[in-house]
Design a binder for these strands. Sequence first.
DNA 1: TGAGTTTGTGTCAATCAGACACTAATCGCT
DNA 2: AGCGATTAGTGTCTGATTGACACAAACTCA
Lengths: 233, 233
Amino acid sequence: MLRLAVDLAILTVRNNALHVLVITRGKEPFLGSLALPGGFLRAGEDLRAAAVRELREETGLDGRDMHLEQLATYGRPDRDPRGRVVSVAYLTIAPDLPAPEAGSDAASALWVPISKAQSRLAFDHDDILRDAVERARTRLEFTTLATAFCGPTFTVGDLRKVYEVVWDQPLDPRNFSRKVLNTAGFIEATGQKRIPQLGRPAALYRRGDQQTLNPPILRSNGGPELEAISVDR
Amino acid sequence: MLRLAVDLAILTVRNNALHVLVITRGKEPFLGSLALPGGFLRAGEDLRAAAVRELREETGLDGRDMHLEQLATYGRPDRDPRGRVVSVAYLTIAPDLPAPEAGSDAASALWVPISKAQSRLAFDHDDILRDAVERARTRLEFTTLATAFCGPTFTVGDLRKVYEVVWDQPLDPRNFSRKVLNTAGFIEATGQKRIPQLGRPAALYRRGDQQTLNPPILRSNGGPELEAISVDR
DNA sequence: TGAGTTTGTGTCAATCAGACACTAATCGCT
DNA sequence: AGCGATTAGTGTCTGATTGACACAAACTCA
């Protein structure tokens, strides 16, 4: 009997590294293994609603004000030992939250650096995670999604750090600053400043109205892999 | 009871217009209406395999040498009056085929211009078609997918026509030529020429090895809609 | 032969990305 | 108070790319 699941790849930036939220499985199959949070679709439930519900149940996060987009659907016949389970994966972007693991059923949820999670996840969740990271990298090129990694206010340096961490490549602070500030609607000045531990105070900004970046901020390196361009599982 | 379907948005360029392959439904619901070809996933069948099978069954096309990529998954609870049906949509790009409607069960398959199909399709297939067209437009910007609309050999003019028709905007032939020919691995010269009805003979090319375009060929106009960036149904 | 049409090369100015010099503002330390 | 260290922000220069367009090349048809 076929069942439909929803899995979540929740990404954030912590300690200068891209992290993913994983849970330790509390039951078979893959008891004790790491996996992406997720669960089965309920009768009459919309796909996105199921994603929001799982986000709350398994992690305690509120999906209403977070970025949540459908990633791809994974349906290899043997991907779940319990039987035929097709999974619709969602990509979620979260700011670095103070208590991300707090929640009712979320005792086992924890942030793990991407590099530590890769090749250690249950089911085909390694595939999902890889596709999620590549999607996020591409989104940073063509949309203002990077601001979703930041809190309500942030500095240009914070935003640059997001790009550097997600892309895993250093960026020139001056050129980045110029590009971001010249893109109307990307970020808006708040008029306030943040005094850092060290160095000159930086102006604080908030998200702008613009969703897409035109022109885009292209990665110098490589570009998207074919794998990610033609996701098909 | 939940069932999983696979639907196909098969696009091609005919008579200087973007066309989609639709079928006339032979049974309820939506008897007699136009719809995208598709069908239910079989037990133990891979998602992509189901797409390839439906492509052959309903249209007589061979998906092995065509572009076939997963588009998105549509799961609104009320999208199918028969009950809960979640559908994984695939995008297929085909060259203008001599006998596209020939096939066993494909008597009712026909090519329809996008503009004629929009707002006339059964289920939520209008949504799928809209997303498919937007995906194709974006693919042309960042990948060499345009060659999938052409036959084994084609001229730069043919390729430009694909861009103009899919993007629905005229392009400067000289600048387009320069950009395409300066992109290594996009197209390869065959050494042959095609004598047209009118005008100077044009050199014939075939697809190159490159899959991605770096730098991309960006649409001057608009850019992708937010709708298409965050497909979520 | 000449008009018409499409292909292909070349030019030019404006724009953009990358590299980098330099100033500004704050810290801790002496 | 003064100095070095560090981060923020502005400005400059160069090379590459884009868009607009002139013009030559190759062919058909009348």
